[in-house]
Simulated assay, not measured.
Amino acid sequence: MKILLAPDKFKGSLTARQVCDAMTEGIRLATPEARIIALPMADGGEGTAEVLTLATAGAWLPVPVLDPLGRLIEAFYGISSDQRTAFIEMSQASGLRLLQPQEYNPLQTHTFGTGQLILHALQQGVSHLILGIGGSATNDGGTGMAAALGWRFLDNQGEPLRPCGGNLTQISRILPPAQPLRLTVEVACDVTNPLIGPNGAAAIYGPQKGASAEEITILDKGLRHLAGLIYDQFGIALAEVPGAGAAGGLGAGALFFLNATLKEGVKLVMEQTHFADHLPDTDLVLTGEGKFDHQTLQGKLISGIAGQAHQAGVPVIALCGTLEAHPEAIAALGLTAAFSVLTHPQSLDEALSSAYQAVRQTTFNLIRLFYSSSERA
């Protein structure tokens, strides 16, 4: 029996790698002769860079960068073993998780540190970049990132501006770097918000970054001004592009400053890990994530895994901590079944601390059931 393991992390308790390890132990107890392929996965959000680095037998590199408020920190990114591809998450350098709640200030935060990570990767000789842009603390349209890569933003006196959300309206001219970027870039982006307007970056995501109603108006005006300058100077229209509003406008910034392509996170990860290549002669796929709810049904990892495996005729079983999906929804995804690993009432702390053993035990039980059913068939 060949079993393919393709879980996401169980947020707050287990990494995707640890979920694979727990599943493997449960399978070995149930059927020692099984052939197991462990493929830790991610949905394009937090943890994606680490998963892709692991999948390519790469290295995880530390880099001194500036955080969203300009303080020196150590951030990390991955580089594949062939040195061709870098895996970067903007949240490592420019994420909301780097700030205390009282420090949230999208008028002042910037993505300069993300640009520093990209610059470091370029200096290693990479030719391809996969960039995750979830968890942003910023609303600068990617200008901070661009500044780290040599772009300059001048006011009406010809003086350089500090690129941040609150300064966007003061930009009078954009100057590209002397050398064009020699890099192909794919951005994991699951949102479809435009850059500006009632569904744009500032209006939808500004409040969670600390912006007041008045500040949202300022930020939206700044992004609108930036988009207008880019159109006037370079003839590129970004304001209404789906996904341009992701990460405080970093979606638009990646499109323009990096000439990037925006792609659905799950599909990008599945392509990079060659998930489909492992499906031939697979008898069962085990996937999972911490919480299986309505978001799972709207394009997250389990949905992507189930869809592709179902097309190949391979049954898929999902494990999770919290199971909120109804049977009809589980069947509609193409899953054979979904199980919560929680077997009795527990506090959150207890559930998190016992997650490894719970995944191991549940995997053992379902493999015994699946294996005996297969034998009878």
Rank of each mutant, 00 (worst) to 15 (best):
L4V: 09
R17V: 10
Q18A: 14
V19P: 13
E25A: 15
G26A: 10
G26T: 09
T31W: 15
T31K: 14
E33M: 10
A34L: 06
I37W: 10
D43Y: 05
V51F: 04
V51W: 04
L52R: 05
T53A: 03
L54Q: 14
A59F: 13
L66I: 00
G70A: 04
R71D: 11
E74K: 10
A75S: 12
A75F: 05
F76S: 11
Y77C: 04
R84Y: 02
T85N: 05
A86V: 01
M90E: 06
Q92K: 13
Q92D: 12
A93R: 03
S94W: 01
R97E: 13
R97V: 03
L99V: 01
N105V: 01
G115Q: 15
I118D: 09
Q124I: 03
V126M: 09
S136G: 08
A137T: 07
N139P: 04
G141E: 11
G141Q: 06
A148D: 05
A148T: 04
F153N: 09
D155W: 12
Q157T: 12
L161C: 07
L161R: 05
N167F: 03
I171H: 10
I174W: 04
P176G: 02
L181P: 06
V185T: 15
A188N: 02
A188I: 02
T192L: 15
G197H: 09
P198R: 02
N199P: 00
A202N: 08
G206F: 06
P207R: 02
Q208T: 05
G210R: 12
A213F: 06
D220G: 03
G222P: 07
G222S: 04
G228C: 00
I230M: 06
Q233N: 08
I236N: 07
A237C: 01
G243E: 03
G245N: 04
G249H: 05
G251A: 09
A252Q: 09
L258T: 02
N259V: 00
T261W: 01
T261Q: 15
F275R: 06
L279A: 01
T282I: 08
T282S: 14
V285P: 05
V285C: 08
T287E: 09
E289I: 00
D293N: 03
H294M: 08
G299I: 04
K300C: 08
K300R: 14
L301V: 01
I302S: 10
S303N: 15
S303K: 02
I305H: 09
A309E: 09
G313W: 02
P315K: 13
G321W: 13
P327E: 11
G334A: 11
F339P: 10
L342T: 14
A351G: 07
A351K: 07
L352R: 13
Q357C: 05
R360E: 14
Q361S: 10
T362R: 15
T362L: 09
T363S: 12
N365I: 00
N365V: 00
L366Q: 03
L369M: 13
S373V: 00
S374L: 15
